[in-house]
Design a protein around this nucleic acid. Structure first.
Lengths: 341, 341
DNA sequence: TTGTAGGCGTTATCAG
DNA sequence: CTGATAACGCCTACAA
């Protein structure tokens, strides 16, 4: 079918088939075409068939921008994440996008980097598109942003973190708790001296802080705490270990703020002749592919990013479909002991 | 300022400040508010100041969905990529998004996976939002899709591949050529026996095919060609090498379809007691972090993903600002020899 | 420099 | 089950 009557062919630059064209061809009112598309149950089989034929013949693509203005529903969700360069974020984003897609929503992704002002600017910008919901990273908002979000009157999920006063829905876990758990894990293995290599993003810092606090509570020793730029890659882990190598005690337990950092440290330890795990025990964070697939694999903390994405989508959908009370989902984390400890 | 006159507070669920509210408060016509936002040059300083104060006081966020319907410009670009799990795609996407953002466009990302039907469905879906431009991955479209795209009357950039008949703008390189270059590189080092581990996505297969063809042209021997699921991770490289290990000749040159695959092969070679580079030379593709930061680093093919993203944005912007002839940008690739060859 | 009129393409609402 | 009418919130086009 070569779209014989395609209006777009003859209308110049503003060419586009619209609902009235379809309606005319099918011999029905535009509203009926709309119903075929949005509420097929309320249209007779026969009419629907005629309309669908017309749609097909004309190559009609509904204009969601017009529909959105009219219905006040954009069928779009905005997601604001620092970056997609890390599995930490692209996993939840990918799963969230798929899940929302299955429910008929498009996800618009905005990348905010690691500067708070950039994040606020991105949120402001996407709000102009009138999303039906919002996915944000982290749970700490400025008062001005909270006001803006509450004015927007849409459900908001915050992921990857917990807070006592979330904006709305929360799907995450306590990063400080993770750090403490790692310290306990090391202590249980007989460690007394510790080090940390942490990226300077808010959540990595929370993990590191929880780690250091627990070490202090145990009466043990932090021999080094080294900060890396965010987002931190394998190279940063290598440089980091090199930077703190001299301060390492006879036997040290190292917590890396991500698996990339931890793996870099392990590689550099090899170069420096520091034995892993005997002289240096290493625990990463994230359960990225590399922690499992490296030879040998190394110990890390697993948090199911896919589960966060799925749960975020589920909660948002529930709320958009009428659930009134915002929920709070705590995602579990667990340490996966492997050969590096 | 507690937004004293905020209409949203009193209008129920459809609350939202609109341009008329701002206009009323500022004592001007709605059109003037629009001008302050879109063409500030055409408004007097004084008026602009009053309007801006009103905007600030009311917390007005322009409704781009209404503006888009009226102006027929959505100020949005849709990008359809297979996945963001690989640096292959998230690099260009991140850079493209930033570049378009600087030019006032939002990018809506759609993830298509590796099935062609899914890609077509995603393109169809995003077209309903009337993007001002489109970024697609790969350069091969079905006739039906070509028709749909030409009806959409918007600029389209296709990245990561070349084609003799691109839809519109093209920013990419010839994957077959890359494979041939890698074969030549190996041959120049005295190799005569080769193997390939390739993910089954179209571009990886093109690279592999170019590789095998050149090997044949040279009169040399392909001892193994093993296919992996797409997208392929480190684990797949490990499994892949294990699968072909018995077929390896005394000295074999291995081409991995990505750095993840190559690194997996290198790790598994270590486990199997196959010496790299003496018994097995390895070349990856992508210049991911791991190829540089592994110890030692390994040989790979570098294609500047960031450059692809930047160039795609530039070309699209040129075209949206009136450039009439579609461009074709060939991005260079080069082999970075490191310790694995 | 500013304002007025009208319409962008769709859907909510109410009537038949 | 189907149709007519009136918005949705903003911007183009034209006028003052």
């Amino acid at each position: 079918m070569e779209h014989p009557t395609l209006p777009s062919r003859s209308r110049g630059p503003f060419a586009s088939v619209k609902i009235t064209d379809v309606a005319a061809l099918a011999g029905v009112a535009p509203m009926t075409v709309s119903r075929v598309l949005n509420t097929p149950d309320r249209v007779s089989q026969l009419t629907a068939a005629k309309v669908r034929a017309a749609i097909e013949q004309l190559g009609y693509v509904p204009n969601l921008i017009a529909g959105g203005l009219s219905s006040r529903r954009s069928r779009m969700i905005a997601a604001v994440v620092p970056t997609i360069a890390s599995p930490m974020f692209h996993e939840p984003v990918q799963v969230f996008t798929d899940a929302m897609g299955a429910a008929g929503y498009h996800v618009m992704l905005a990348l905010s980097g690691y500067e708070p002002e950039a994040e606020d600017a991105q949120i402001r910008a996407v709000l102009a598109r009138r999303p039906d919901g919002l996915l944000l990273t982290g749970a700490h908002r400025t008062p001005a942003m909270r006001l803006l979000l509450s004015d927007a009157q849409i459900p908001v999920v915050e992921i990857w973190d917990v807070s006592d006063s979330p904006t709305d829905i929360l799907v995450g876990f306590d990063h400080g708790e993770v750090g403490a758990a790692v310290a306990d894990f090391f202590a249980a293995a007989g460690h007394t001296h510790y080090a940390a290599l942490l990226a300077s993003d808010p959540r990595a810092m929370a993990r590191s802080q929880g780690f250091a606090q627990r070490v202090a509570q145990l009466g043990h020793v932090m021999v080094a705490e080294h900060r890396l730029p965010a987002p931190a890659a394998i190279r940063d882990g290598r440089l980091g270990l090199r930077a703190i190598a001299q301060r390492l005690a006879g036997r040290t337990a190292l917590f890396g703020s991500s698996d990339n950092v931890a793996y870099g440290a392990i590689l550099e330890a090899g170069v420096l002749g520091i034995a892993v795990p005997n002289q240096l025990s290493v625990c990463g964070f994230g359960d990225f592919d590399i922690s499992r697939d490296a030879e040998p694999g190394f110990t890390t903390v697993r948090v199911d990013g896919a589960e966060i994405g799925r749960s975020a989508a589920e909660q948002l959908l529930l709320r958009m479909n009428g659930a009134t009370k915002p929920n709070r989902v705590l995602v579990p984390h667990r340490i996966l002991p492997r050969a590096s400890t």
